[in-house]
Simulated scan of single mutants.
Amino acid sequence: MMTENLFGIMFQNRRNLHTILTETPKEKLLQIPEGFNNNVYWNIAHTVATQQLLIYKLSGLQMRIPNELVAKFAKGTVPDGTATEEEMMMVADFLISTAEWLIEDYDTALFQTFNEYTTSARVTLKNVDDAIVFNLLHEGLHLGQISLLLKQLA
């Protein structure tokens, strides 16, 4: 069972990402610094897509974001350096709404099954609780990457 504090940490991390996305100039969000293969925007959108894959898809549930967004930002994708204002605002909205939906869906026991999965970090997720905890670690790693990217762009 997830603790309220764990969801609080998730929500604060999402608010931090939302602030970066909405307060950083678009050209900085989309710029890929020399020596890097992605940008700030891709890292932020990737956290939204990955949360849906790890928690909803592995639980055999319909993801709550468009499949096109998942396909564009899933693991193994690379940014093309472009994004519409509409897409960026959609990602900003999903940063918060997907966190809210997860808490709601967890509290109403929506997650009944789970397809065991071993991540590229060699962590085996056996249930939705494992997926939620691992997703928090994953988002923290990307927040660190975003901080590094922002320093390169300063």
Rank of each mutant, 00 (worst) to 15 (best):
S97I: 05
K151N: 14
E104T: 14
F134G: 03
G81I: 01
T3S: 15
I32S: 02
I9E: 10
T82D: 11
P66L: 02
W101H: 14
N16K: 01
V40Q: 01
V40H: 03
N39H: 09
V133Q: 09
T118G: 10
E100T: 01
V128K: 00
M2C: 01
I32R: 03
M63H: 07
N67F: 14
N115L: 14
L6M: 13
N43I: 02
V48D: 01
N67K: 10
I32P: 03
P79T: 04
G8L: 10
S59I: 11
D107M: 14
Y41I: 05
D130E: 01
E87V: 11
I103V: 15
F7V: 05
Q145M: 11
D105L: 09
E139C: 10
F11Y: 13
T22R: 10
H142C: 06
D129G: 04
L125K: 01
L21F: 05
D105R: 11
N16P: 00
A83P: 00
E85R: 10
F73T: 00
R122Q: 15
R14S: 08
Y41T: 06
G60H: 03
E100L: 07
L30D: 09
G8C: 08
T82I: 13
V91P: 00
M1G: 08
M2V: 02
T50G: 07
E100P: 05
A121E: 12
F7Q: 02
G81K: 04
N13V: 11
M88I: 15
I44G: 05
H18P: 01
W101G: 04
E27T: 02
V78Y: 15
T82H: 11
N39L: 13
R15A: 11
W42G: 09
S147Q: 00
K72P: 09
E4G: 09
D93Y: 15
